[in-house]
């Protein structure tokens, strides 16, 4: 028996939507697995809350005097702090323009056995009077931040 044309059309529509959205959701979940990474402040890393080998982001203020460049390549190590604990970051490459001692940064990478963050990316995504929101938050939670004037970010006014 021939189907009613309108019903057939509606069925087609539903079929398409179901097939494509399932494909899209499948891809989405597959892609999301392992491509999201969580931010940890140095205090939590020092407390051992981060599984080894997991891809994470970490950040804090660059400790003044801690930046050490390699002599014949672009390797660099520095320490970041949230004023409770420090984390050593190792990176090879060009640091962003806004990277400086005493400024807030975020690094993405994997923690090795020595507890050093082997960073694949270092971000300093802020302007002169603004710091990465994660870092601002981490500082706000630590004792130091309560006595100093680290803001929640640049106020628009």
């Amino acid at each position: 028996m021939p189907m009613h044309p309108q019903r057939k059309q509606r069925l087609m529509l539903v079929a398409f939507i179901v097939v494509f959205t399932s494909v899209a959701i499948g891809l989405m979940l597959y892609a999301l697995r392992g491509n999201i990474n969580l931010f940890y402040p140095p205090a939590e890393i020092a407390a051992g809350k981060v599984p080894q080998g997991a891809s994470i982001r970490a950040g804090g203020m660059v400790v003044p005097g801690s930046v050490q460049r390699g002599t014949d390549d672009l390797s660099v190590t520095f320490r970041v702090t949230d004023y409770q604990a420090e984390l050593v970051v190792s990176y090879s490459g060009i640091l962003p323009d806004l990277f400086a001692e005493g400024e807030g940064i975020v690094a993405a990478g994997v923690l090795d056995e020595q507890g050093v963050l082997q960073a694949t990316e270092v971000l300093a995504k802020h302007d002169e009077n603004y710091m990465p929101p994660e870092v601002a938050d981490a500082l706000a939670q630590s004792a130091e931040a309560s006595s100093t004037d680290y803001g929640q970010g640049k106020t628009p006014e």
Partner: peptide, 20 residues
């Protein structure tokens, strides 16, 4: 928690869709 969703996610989803 403070997550970030990076380019690998978007590439993994977007490129196959465009290829399709």
């Amino acid at each position: 928690g403070k997550y970030s969703v990076g380019p690998p996610y978007f590439n993994a989803v977007f490129v196959p869709l465009m290829a399709l």
